[in-house]
């Protein structure tokens, strides 16, 4: 190990209480006298604690997913398919899946408070940020006499669904089976009447509390 690597090794051993007593005391003195070292130790403390917290979150999510199988009436672990077994997510995956898209959120917020309008197309439901599981139903205030284009994007702005809606449709339902949990955005476009943009969730209960 290089001297720099040995230095980091010493810090992490100090933080985990793994240094011999005399070296622990020496390290404490060094920290008190050296603000740069003190900051370094604080940074590594933050990171190591964070690594443990992320690990705990992932494990606890896994246990919750085992419990969920009972709630859904699927308690037979032996017969569980590989596909079902893979349906657990780590914290960083969930953070990515529920990450808001800043530009979209800002447009939605402005439109909802009436600062900005994207046209005269009016959608009664779904409400912004509604939570769905298997399907989403749209209801227009007034059907329009032209075909509409519906697109759904995930939190990474990847288009996951594109569908034409026939002219004069007032209500239609989209199947969400196969969609992963996460935050999504739907856009309903009309050439004449503009566009409506809103967000929705699938399994919002899985959203990390930081959002």
């Amino acid at each position: 190990m290089t001297p720099q690597e040995q230095h980091i090794d010493r810090i992490q051993k100090y933080l985990r209480g793994e240094l011999p007593p005399n070296e622990m005391t020496a390290m404490k003195t060094d920290i008190e006298q050296n603000p740069v070292l003190a900051q370094e130790v604080a940074d590594y403390h933050f990171l190591i604690e964070g690594i443990v917290a992320v690990g705990a979150f992932d494990f606890e999510a896994k246990v919750a997913s085992w419990e969920q199988k009972y709630k859904l009436g699927r308690s037979d672990f032996e017969e569980e398919s590989e596909e079902e077994a893979s349906e657990t997510y780590t914290l960083d995956e969930l953070l990515a899946m529920f990450q808001p898209v800043g530009a979209y959120e800002s447009r939605i917020a402005k439109e909802l408070v009436g600062i900005r309008s994207m046209g005269n197309l009016k959608v009664i439901q779904p409400e912004n940020e509604a939570d769905f599981l298997e399907q989403i139903t749209f209801q227009l205030e007034n059907p329009v006499n032209e075909a509409l284009k519906l697109t759904i994007e995930n939190s990474e702005e990847d288009e996951v669904l594109k569908q034409n809606i026939a002219a004069n449709t007032a209500t239609f339902t989209i199947d969400l089976k196969g969609f992963k949990p996460g935050r999504y955005y739907w856009k309903l476009r009309s050439k004449k009447y503009g566009m409506v943009l809103r967000s929705f969730f699938i399994q919002k209960n899985l959203m990390p509390p930081t959002f």
């Binding site: 990171l47 979150f57 953070l95």
Partner: peptide
Amino acid sequence: KKEHQKKVVARLLQ
């Protein structure tokens, strides 16, 4: 603070 720490570190690990 803990939630923030977890979120920051999860992103860094990613």
